[in-house]
Design a protein around this nucleic acid. Structure first.
Ligand SMILES: [Mn+2]
Length: 720
DNA sequence: GCGCTGCGATT
DNA sequence: AATCGC
DNA sequence: GCGC
């Protein structure tokens, strides 16, 4: 982030998208002249902030910036905390335009800055308008009415002892919806006594596969592990098309008599009804109508992909230059760039890291270099000034607008959510990357050929995209049953992941009440269910700002020198955030963490009622944690998740980098570090790291941590 | 055919 | 060690 | 699922 004023105004930055993520930012270093982090407004100490605040109108920006990100992620959806879903993809795209990650924090704090003010206004509106917060749902009410039990006394709730609280919450309509299927899926004995089932391991979500096999065996069925043969009665797979037959070794396209190739859902439904049901609705299509013929011949996807990829990817460097140099400066540009014939035009994708780098460069205007890959488009850019208010406004407007490929994004998001819930982390990652890449596209994708050119979109996804653009639909999605919805909802509870969600589902639970009445929940899970509806809501930026201000004020009471930096999606400039992430540090010279101040701060916030519930303990016995997750709420408002990270000042650069996120960005840069035999985490960048097994392991030597620039330089990233 | 970020907290 | 979340 |  640049802290210069100029930038501020215009800049915004952002990063990536959605999904969850986070992105962090950094401060300083990015711009050429960057002042040190400390100079930045964001970094103002609590006391300074307070002073400012009093001064003038709301300094709205304080600290913030509007940046945006482009990435996506998901919490939410997945993860993301930020949540995943984002249906608002648009936002991202718009954002992209102007922001660049590096700048994140730029802003000046002078309230007098006009631009800022305007911007502020704009930001305000938008997010607010979208916000559904005003709707009320029963659950929410319930929660609100609950006494903040802990409020005053701070964390009394014992984490370990959780007894199930039952009952309370009427769960409301949502549960009602979910409660459709309520039969316990336990296998009745003999249910599968006459079946021999072969699971095509590939592709079936691991956890689900395990559970299904177990259920089949409990029901007396035989699970064939050694390979398919004609004695099998049912083949379970999530795959479709001719490839299924190839995998089974059926070369003539003729499925042996008595063998049914069905979706895993058939088993679920049988369990649910307690009887073997008609397989017909679950038969998997193997005729392969839609795949391209090429695909047919290829047996291994990977092989195929490679070929295709090679073709497309290669032309890289060049593009970048094109796009970069010319345009960046101009404010809006960017992303668009496409034109280049070659390649890319359409395809661009890129690595988030590269993109960021590219942008930065542009901004800086200087160089270009980069290595390869792609071009970029997307961008995050923004930094420097380039944008005028108009641009900002435009982007905001654009946000609303749908991406030309919104339909594709929405469909793929459903697949992503599905795989995430099914615990297939790698497919989840792939879809996340694919969606991020598509969001960067400015032109509609109209064919398999268009799609396959895009980095991170391979043969399989390109096929799906082709189906979506040709038919408006994706058949695969039709088969996702209500089971997925239930599992998805369970998995959306804080503290409940794919494994736990499936376990509960497998036990027959279908509603929150089922869970509250029958499961030993962890402390965090109980709170997660209690405030489920509130926590699903995104938080408008201005509310994040308001809460951040209150935290700063409290921090000032503890120690006027504490620095509170709101990171995460907020610093990335998102119009709404999935949660509030605050970095706490103090420039006190030594590299120690001021744990005492951290405890005091949390205590004050609890007493004030801003912090209402703990999701984690901030200390265990004498040991104080370096992070804390809890719920906060403004008077009369909804509850939100708030995360605190306390760090030694010397790790500020690494922490900003890590907590500003967007997880895709973090993964990219950490992967880059790894390739250079280095290790990057939230403490710093280490070199000469040996990851080999045994003693050949070395944590490496710390080489950078104080500023983001220091880290980028050490990584050899041109960063401006 | 392999790797996909890296780590703190809770249970 | 598994699970979860960031 | 994608990329190498
Ligand atoms: Mn966040």
């Amino acid at each position: 982030m640049v802290f210069e004023e100029k930038e501020l105004s215009s800049s915004t930055n952002s990063d990536a998208p959605p999904n969850n993520s986070k992105y962090q930012e950094d401060s300083s270093q990015l711009s050429d002249s960057f002042h040190s982090v400390i100079d930045s407004p964001n970094l103002l100490s609590a006391q300074e902030n307070k002073i400012l605040k009093n001064k003038g109108k709301k300094r709205a920006f304080d600290g913030d910036n509007l940046l945006e990100e482009t990435a996506s992620e998901s919490r939410d959806s997945s993860h993301d905390s930020d949540t995943p879903v984002l249906k608002k993809i648009k936002t991202y795209s718009a954002v992209n335009k102007n922001v660049s990650r590096p700048q994140l924090s730029s802003f000046s704090f002078k309230p007098s800055n006009k631009k800022k003010r305007k911007f502020y206004k704009i930001m305000h509106k938008k997010p607010t308008s979208d916000d559904p917060k005003y709707q009320h749902d029963p659950l929410a009410d319930t929660s609100q009415s609950l006494p903040a039990q802990k409020t005053s006394k701070s964390r009394q709730i014992p984490f370990g002892s959780s007894k199930v609280i039952r009952g309370r919450k009427k769960k409301s309509t949502k549960d009602a919806v979910l409660s459709k299927n309520i039969n316990p899926p336990s296998s009745s004995p003999g249910l599968f006594s006459d079946v021999r089932i072969f699971f095509i391991p590939n592709n079936i979500d691991k956890v689900r596969l395990r559970l299904l096999k177990q259920k089949v065996e409990e029901g007396g069925g035989q699970v064939i592990e050694d390979g398919f043969d004609a004695s099998v009665t049912h083949v379970i797979t999530t795959l479709e098309g001719q490839r299924v037959l190839k995998i089974l070794g059926i070369s003539d396209d003729i499925i042996p008599q008595g063998v049914f190739i069905v979706e895993p859902n058939w088993i679920s439904q049988c369990l649910m009804r307690g009887e073997l049901i008609d397989v017909r609705p679950y038969i998997v299509q193997t005729s392969d109508t839609q795949s391209l013929k090429q695909s047919d011949k290829r047996i291994h996807d990977s092989v195929d992909d490679n070929d295709e990829n090679k073709r497309n990817n290669r032309p890289k460097k060049k593009k970048r230059q094109d796009s970069l140099s010319p345009k960046m400066r101009s404010p809006s540009p960017p992303s668009t760039l496409p034109k280049t014939h070659e390649s890319s035009s359409s395809a661009q994708g890129d690595d988030p890291l590269l993109e960021m780098i590219a942008e930065t460069k542009c901004l800086a205007e200087d160089g270009f270099l980069l290595d390869d890959d792609d071009d970029e488009s997307r961008k995050i850019q923004g930094n420097k000034m380039s944008d005028s208010e108009d641009e900002i406004l435009m982007s905001l407007l654009q946000d609303k607008t749908n991406n030309p490929n919104q339909l594709i994004i929405d469909k793929l998001q459903v697949l992503l959510d599905h795989y995430q819930r099914m615990k297939d982390e790698w497919r989840t990652l792939s879809y996340r990357k694919a969606i991020t890449a598509i969001k960067k596209q400015k032109e509609p994708i109209t064919s398999y050929e268009d799609a396959i050119k895009i980095p991170d979109i391979g043969h399989r996804t390109a096929e799906k995209i082709a189906e979506i653009v040709n038919t408006g639909n994706l058949k695969r999605l039709q088969h996702f049953s209500e089971d997925d919805e239930v599992i998805k909802k369970f998995g959306a509870i804080f503290g409940v992941g794919a494994t736990t969600a499936m376990k509960w589902y497998a036990k027959g639970y279908r509603t929150f009440d089922d869970i509250l009445n029958n499961v030993e929940l962890t402390h965090a899970q109980r709170i997660g269910i209690e405030y489920f509806d509130d926590l699903q809501e995104k938080i408008p930026r201005d509310e994040v700002l308001e809460i951040s201000e209150r935290v700063k004020e409290a921090a000032c009471k503890v120690d006027p020198d504490l620095l509170c930096i709101t990171v995460g999606s907020y610093i990335r400039g998102q119009p709404t955030c999935g949660d509030i992430d605050i970095l706490i540090t103090k420039n006190d010279g030594d590299g120690k963490i001021n744990y005492d101040a951290f405890s005091k701060l949390l205590h004050i916030l609890h007493e004030q009622g801003l912090l209402t519930h703990d999701l984690t303990q901030h200390h265990v016995e004498e040991k104080v944690s370096s992070k804390y997750y809890g719920l906060c709420r403004l008077p009369g408002g909804k509850h939100h998740q708030i995360d605190f990270f306390i760090i030694p000042f010397n790790e500020l650069g690494a922490a900003l980098l890590a907590y500003t996120g967007n997880d895709i960005f973090n993964r990219s840069i950490r992967l880059l570090a790894k390739k250079k035999k280095m290790n990057l985490n939230h403490h710093g960048l280490y070199k000469n790291v040996s990851r080999g097994p045994g003693k050949s392991k070395s944590e490496g030597v710390l080489i950078a941590q104080r500023t983001e620039k220091e880290i980028f330089d050490a990584l050899g990233i041109p960063w401006r």
